[in-house]
């Protein structure tokens, strides 16, 4: 896993609620057997029409909006456990997803892949959407160490929560498997006891 460093970036707003994993990456694209290449089909049915032409009204097709931070409406990532959703977002080029509420499994999957999900208050989310509406080049500063997200335009800042263990994984670029492999002995002791 890549180390997560402090990030200043413009944002891509997607003010829709309950964006589910079938929207993020439709099931028909889950036939790949590697982790790469899903970004091409991120939000496929919103991004392209049936003939695979870009739908100009969709935000990813609007050249005004780009950046490494996706900001979406509440209950983002609900639905399936497909990690492909996190892979697609990351493969497209996002490092951070911000919402006022995340579905559990999505959040876990994102963290396991070095994609940082940041939960902010409803009010802060609205203020981000407002700022980007006024100026598409609006930037956010994400400081994982300090656990803050800051709107550069106004200086408005909010703290976010993250599990301390997960935080250290992201900062140091290691994953659960590295951690748990060191516990093999404890696992075997547990198995003998359970028998």
């Amino acid at each position: 896993m890549k180390k997560f460093e402090k990030l200043t970036s413009a944002i891509v707003p997607l003010p829709i609620e309950n964006i589910d994993t079938d929207q993020i990456i439709p099931a028909r694209f889950l036939k790949a057997t590697t982790r790469e290449g899903f970004g091409e089909n991120l939000f496929c049915d919103w991004r392209y029409d049936e003939q695979k032409n870009k739908r100009p009204e969709f935000v990813l097709n609007n050249p005004l909006y780009n950046g490494k931070i996706l900001v979406a409406g509440k209950n983002f990532g609900c639905g399936s456990s497909r990690e492909h959703a996190a892979w697609a977002i990351q493969d497209y080029g996002f490092n951070v997803v911000i919402s006022s509420f995340f579905a559990d499994i999505f959040k876990g999957n994102a963290l396991n892949n070095g994609l940082l999900p940041i939960q902010v208050s409803d009010e802060f989310l609205i203020s981000i959407f407002k700022a980007v509406e006024q100026d598409p080049a609006t930037e956010l500063i994400i400081d994982l160490e300090q656990q803050t997200v800051t709107l550069t335009a106004t200086g408005a800042q909010e703290n976010f929560e993250i599990n301390p263990y997960k935080k250290s994984c992201l900062i140091n670029g290691y994953d659960d498997i590295d951690f748990i492999l060191n516990q093999k002995e404890a696992i075997e002791v547990f198995e003998r006891k359970a028998d």
Binding site: E83, I105, F179, I180
Partner: peptide, 20 residues
């Protein structure tokens, strides 16, 4: 409960999961 692919790998490797 359902898990993502990284966790599938984790369980295959260790028969355990890190869980809150």
């Amino acid at each position: 409960f359902g898990i993502g692919t990284s966790q599938v790998e984790q369980v295959m490797a260790t028969q355990c999961l890190l869980q809150q």
